[in-house]
Amino acid sequence: MKGILYGVSIGPGDPELITLKAVNIIQSCDIIAVPAANEDTSTALHIVRKVLPEIDSKKIIQLFMPMTRDKKQMEEYHQKAANIIKGYLDQANNVAMLTLGDATIYSTYLYVHRLIKEGGYETHIIPGVPSFCASAARLGIGLVEGAEPLHILPASYEGIEQGLALGGTKVLMKIGKSIDRIKRILKHNGQDENAMLIQKCGMEGEQTLCSLDQADENTSYFSVIIVKE
């Protein structure tokens, strides 16, 4: 009998936003897999430890997942991670792979999930609180009302101009070093005055900027801009 892979969403950073279901799955699994940009870093694991310090008594495997736009390199990292997980699943171990926010939204987990599922293994996704929902709550605003549409845009990629031209509320994610370009586009569109930025929502160093003029090249990758009509 093979083990099961769970993609466990842990929310945007506030440990209190980790769902009870996520806690139960983590506690029940034999192996905890955590994506890390380097050998010493795992933001997701750091957050979970605040709720479940006993997680360190489990077998924890780090999956090297550096940020890169090189498609071939990304595929290699994802395949390597999937192969490592398969090794544990083949030994009938259930594996919980932690992921920030929600696993279905711009998540590294999804790539591994597909590879594992294609290999004939059982997989489950545990939903979590998306960063933009937590950000809107922190700002005290609604994202959409009535018939208003909501658009989620990966701000550091090409094509953001078309997305910003759509009606309704726009949520810009994956910002980081693209902040200056984003500010120029929003200002050109006359949308900058209706934009609010919150970085590291629920994490140490959280900051809310009601004016994008305050944002600079040091803006965190874990930032969300909400543009209201």
Score class of each variant (00 low, 15 high):
residue 215 A to I: 01
residue 83 N to S: 15
residue 68 T to C: 08
residue 92 A to T: 05
residue 62 Q to S: 15
residue 88 Y to R: 02
residue 66 P to A: 11
residue 220 S to N: 14
residue 178 S to G: 07
residue 79 Q to A: 10
residue 5 L to C: 08
residue 60 I to F: 02
residue 6 Y to M: 06
residue 167 G to I: 10
residue 44 A to I: 02
residue 100 L to C: 05
residue 17 L to M: 09
residue 34 V to N: 13
residue 113 H to P: 00
residue 22 A to L: 05
residue 50 K to S: 09
residue 189 N to W: 14
residue 177 K to P: 09
residue 88 Y to N: 05
residue 181 R to L: 15
residue 74 M to W: 06
residue 170 K to T: 01
residue 9 S to K: 01
residue 198 I to C: 05
residue 106 Y to W: 06
residue 101 G to D: 04
residue 128 G to C: 05
residue 190 G to A: 11
residue 51 V to Q: 04
residue 145 E to F: 05
residue 67 M to S: 05
residue 106 Y to H: 10
residue 56 D to A: 08
residue 2 K to V: 15
residue 21 K to E: 08
residue 41 T to R: 15
residue 160 I to P: 02
residue 15 P to N: 07
residue 182 I to H: 01
residue 2 K to D: 15
residue 215 A to P: 01
residue 133 C to Q: 10
residue 194 N to W: 00
residue 16 E to Q: 11
residue 223 S to F: 13
residue 40 D to E: 14
residue 144 V to Y: 07
residue 181 R to N: 15
residue 140 G to F: 06
residue 160 I to L: 15
residue 221 Y to G: 14
residue 86 K to I: 14
residue 140 G to M: 07
residue 99 T to Y: 04
residue 56 D to C: 08
residue 213 D to P: 03
residue 226 I to Y: 02
residue 4 I to D: 06
residue 38 N to K: 08
residue 161 E to N: 11
residue 120 G to P: 07
residue 216 D to K: 01
residue 37 A to I: 03
residue 152 I to Y: 10
residue 51 V to N: 07
residue 14 D to V: 04
residue 130 P to S: 03
residue 15 P to L: 05
residue 128 G to F: 06
residue 194 N to E: 12
residue 3 G to R: 02
residue 80 K to D: 13
residue 130 P to E: 11
residue 96 A to P: 10
residue 198 I to Q: 10
residue 190 G to W: 06
residue 135 S to F: 04
residue 123 T to E: 09
residue 21 K to D: 00
residue 191 Q to V: 00
residue 30 D to C: 06
residue 175 I to K: 05
residue 92 A to H: 13
residue 156 S to N: 15
residue 216 D to N: 13
residue 173 M to R: 00
residue 173 M to D: 00
residue 75 E to H: 11
residue 148 E to D: 15
residue 43 T to F: 01
residue 154 P to K: 08
residue 168 G to T: 08
residue 188 H to N: 03
residue 86 K to N: 12
residue 228 K to N: 12
residue 31 I to F: 07
residue 224 V to N: 12
residue 225 I to D: 13
residue 1 M to Y: 03
residue 224 V to G: 11
residue 20 L to M: 08
residue 164 L to P: 00
residue 132 F to C: 04
residue 111 Y to N: 14
residue 124 H to E: 15
residue 198 I to R: 01
residue 58 K to M: 11
residue 53 P to W: 05
residue 129 V to H: 03
residue 19 T to C: 12
residue 51 V to P: 09
residue 132 F to R: 02
residue 68 T to M: 13
residue 149 P to T: 12
residue 70 D to F: 08
residue 98 L to Q: 13
residue 83 N to I: 09
residue 67 M to Q: 03
residue 145 E to S: 08
residue 78 H to E: 13
residue 76 E to A: 06
residue 213 D to H: 03
residue 138 R to W: 12
residue 23 V to D: 02
residue 109 Y to N: 10
residue 129 V to Y: 01
residue 26 I to S: 09
residue 11 G to V: 01
residue 177 K to C: 03
residue 84 I to P: 00
residue 40 D to V: 03
residue 67 M to W: 07
residue 173 M to W: 11
residue 86 K to C: 14
residue 143 L to K: 12
residue 123 T to H: 02
residue 118 E to R: 01
